[in-house]
């Protein structure tokens, strides 16, 4: 988990939110935010609490980074596949 967060935090400066990839990440983050808002006891809420307890981080940045990572990885694998 710490490795993934370290990796994610490095995205902050170079990630371009204006691109279609950026849009996809934002849309995914919004979906996660709404999921957290509506899930009081489900697995996602437990993960959120775990993040907050163990890492002392606000949950939404974590979710945003997670969404960014997911989109970047998807984009990377798509690019590899098209070669």
């Amino acid at each position: 988990m710490p490795d993934r967060l370290t990796e994610a935090s490095m995205l902050e400066d170079d990630f371009d939110f204006s691109t279609p990839e950026g849009e996809a990440a934002i849309r995914a983050a919004i979906a996660l935010v709404l999921e957290v808002r509506e899930t009081e006891t489900g697995p996602l809420a437990r993960k959120v609490r775990l993040y907050e307890r163990t890492l002392g981080l606000a949950v939404i940045p974590v979710l945003l980074r997670r969404a960014i990572l997911a989109v970047k990885r998807r984009g990377f694998s798509l690019r590899r596949g098209s070669r």
Partner: peptide
């Protein structure tokens, strides 16, 4: 709870230096 969520989203936008991207209220 939604006021708190709004506050957090504002903080995240500040941290990422973005503007009016993360707010989910349009979907609601």
């Amino acid at each position: 709870g939604d006021e708190d969520l709004q506050f957090r989203l504002q903080e995240v936008e500040r941290r990422h230096s973005i503007n009016n991207l993360l707010f989910p209220w349009g979907r609601l």
